[in-house]
Write a protein that binds this DNA or RNA. Structure first.
Lengths: 122, 122
DNA sequence: CAGGATCCTGCCTGATACTG
DNA sequence: CAGTATCAGGCAGGATCCTG
């Protein structure tokens, strides 16, 4: 087993399927500013509409929200459901692949909370 | 409890200690190209020297390795031990805070492996 | 309501050369 | 060996305006 970590590729835009390291593979998909927050919010709210995401994830712009959602959809992390009503209605939710990330996100969040607690006690 | 996710800040350079969301807090520290790979490698090898990191983490440059190590040290994720010998010798290892991240990294890696397996079976 | 289209910029990242 | 210093560029990310 090779202990080297093959990071010799730019993420998130190269062909991730040639990646040797699973961590890098994961970061190729998730390693951007808004991906984790979006998944994290969806994990707590099931199906969510576009503008609710925009409202609840403070600071995100339409450009980045749309871009991030498109990419997450492309990698089958989320699913987009469009209703052709007027006004239009679009809902996003996690796929099974996306739901499999929840424990990881929870772990990251728990780690963060723990560290914040430690920071404050100093 | 507020379900909103406050991401209205630039990471990784703003004051992370004012962050509301623990996930964002964590990403402020870890959310860059090489942080996870470095921690991931250290988690598998305990103390590691600078040039070994550089050799094993394929593609990283001295600039980014040094910068990433400094930042991780600043946030007490890793510890740097310097031996004033000739030639110099510097070792890096995870702190307790850093080790607490291993389960998260493992989870991310496991998720990646699972998805790669699924991808290949198609 | 759910984006598209544009333009713009900072800094993340890399390449190269040098040093105690 | 373990970095520092310097220069340069590309792209992630943001701001703004527009639309079916």
């Amino acid at each position: 087993m090779n202990k080297d970590i093959d990071c010799n590729q730019k993420f998130p835009n190269d062909n991730i399927y040639e990646t040797q390291c699973a961590t890098i593979y994961a970061l190729n998909i998730l390693g951007q500013k808004w991906k984790f927050p979006i998944i994290w919010y969806l994990s707590k709210n099931d199906t969510t509409r576009y503008n609710e995401l925009k409202r609840k994830i403070k600071g995100i712009t339409t450009t980045m929200l749309t871009k991030s959602l498109r990419e997450l959809e492309e990698y089958s992390i989320i699913i987009r459901t469009q209703y052709n009503t007027i006004p239009p209605k679009v809902e996003y939710s996690l796929t099974e692949r996306g739901k499999a990330l929840i424990p990881v996100l929870s772990g990251l969040n728990a780690w963060g909370e723990e560290q914040i607690k430690i920071d404050k006690s100093k």
